[in-house]
Write a protein that binds this DNA or RNA. Sequence first.
DNA 1: TTGTAAGCGTTATCAA
DNA 2: TTGATAACGCTTACAA
Lengths: 324, 324
Amino acid sequence: MTTIKDIAAAAGVSVSTVSNVMNHKSNVGEETRQRILRLCQELHYIPNAAGKNLKTGESKTILFNFGDFDRSFYLKIIEGINDYAGDNGYDLMICTTKSCEKYMHNKLTDGCIILDYRMEDKTIQRAATEQYPIVVLDRVLPHPYIKSLVVNNYGPMTELVEGIVERGYRKFAFIGGIEHTDDNKERFQAFIDVLTKHRIPFRRENYFSGDYREQSGYQAAKIFMSAPELPEIFVCANDNMAIGAMNALRERGYRIPDDAAVTGFDNCERAETAGLTTVAAPDYERGYLAASSLIENIKGGGNFELMKLTAVVEWRKSVGICPF
Amino acid sequence: MTTIKDIAAAAGVSVSTVSNVMNHKSNVGEETRQRILRLCQELHYIPNAAGKNLKTGESKTILFNFGDFDRSFYLKIIEGINDYAGDNGYDLMICTTKSCEKYMHNKLTDGCIILDYRMEDKTIQRAATEQYPIVVLDRVLPHPYIKSLVVNNYGPMTELVEGIVERGYRKFAFIGGIEHTDDNKERFQAFIDVLTKHRIPFRRENYFSGDYREQSGYQAAKIFMSAPELPEIFVCANDNMAIGAMNALRERGYRIPDDAAVTGFDNCERAETAGLTTVAAPDYERGYLAASSLIENIKGGGNFELMKLTAVVEWRKSVGICPF
DNA sequence: TTGTAAGCGTTATCAA
DNA sequence: TTGATAACGCTTACAA
């Protein structure tokens, strides 16, 4: 492991001179600079980020945190973040829940983007400061140094359920995601508001509380199938659960949408091939915007206003005209 | 930002005492320990990893590097790595190509798993040492401190192409991935070997060199469709390109597999819903094994022998019985 | 049981 | 144009 000292020794100069070269300072003789640069190449010198951080208190690195490996659109978000950060001189570091706090504090990173719903509000709010701005995705957090970037769930869910009602469906089941998430609350609220508006009854037994994973949708559908009457349509809080539900229904020989219709939310990769009616959020764009907001805020120029992106309903063959 | 000094001051002790508490040393009085622990809670003290690394030269963190956001099974690999690392007291840090080298050197991480094919062999070989073992996925790299973990491409591709021949197909097209990758070479070699064995001619014009992305498969199919005669089957080096090809074919009104059959490789999420015949690699398991090998090697107990995982062919409806 | 001090690799300040 | 030196937050001998 080559350090700045090794380079200094090899070049016969002091460490400060090497440091000055590495940081493109102008106070170094051209000949010395060249010699040092050559040595860095030869000895494969890469400055130690820990040492640098410790001293400067800034890392030119942003952190992205996620914790759900079932949602393939996360990769699109990462791609958006990666592209913006890369183009703007910032490194991207990604971590899963467990290790995140360590990197958030202490200026190991300059700011972060949080997507993991298991990260507690309090933790995030405590970490955010003027010097360490945070962007949260898919949740709204009041705090002077946290910017929330959400996709508007209420609007498109309203549109979706209105469309379903229009197609004649009346007996609804709702497969919800993690209860306390804003996403889930908004999606359910839009759902129930449309039903109320049309005076369509919805009984609490027809709400199943899942965890956004495919397995829980599968399980939910199994439970609904054991009831005396099958719902006409399963509105699910995300695609994974919708796909789980579809699988369970098909296993029992039900056809979709003839025997029961299903809708999701997210427009994940499989939704298209599965013909699942769903709501499409702009993932790459979300990531890109999150990174750009964060970096603006790190630099001090930005703002912390809530930002809403709009998603659109994708009608596919998992919903037809209600045959009942 | 609370530092060890703040805690020491608040508790009226020296920093070494605080350090001893944080590191579960036994040489601290019980009452002092309690007081310090309480203060850490109250002041939200989180030890600065940079300072710690710098001093100890170890981070209890492993690094995972990837760089392709199109391949959703990467998340499964990450999940496997994350689970093993988490269960064994290691943190996981993930980075994309650009920022990787910085974290590889200098003991910012204790070892790494490399999946990005854009990372050069030389770079990896230079970074690997007894103190910094590396695991590479999907490529074979001779080096005393690099362990290669590959899925056996040759075997399952042979099985796949044999099966295709058996079903009566004779006019093949091959849509390859990035030329220099071992994956691509092996997949193509198996393909050509089976054809040769059965004396089925394959002309170089029927090889298209893609880049593993959906777009390049789409493009490839378009090019093949502009030739006088359409191949009976498109064997693709991965699923993304296969799905791209399927889309292009369908856009022109061709039915799959009636007018042309298609196969992929990877068994990505969409492959199942798309009914694509493909080869399934055990992704979660790969990640898990990679992490376990790496951590063994960090601890010094492991080995650096090449490890091969076997993939299996998944026959789906994108290949039928050859109608020609 | 606790404290002192050196040092990890860097940068910044100041002096030469 | 260069070099000493202190400091960032932490651990670890060693001394008290």
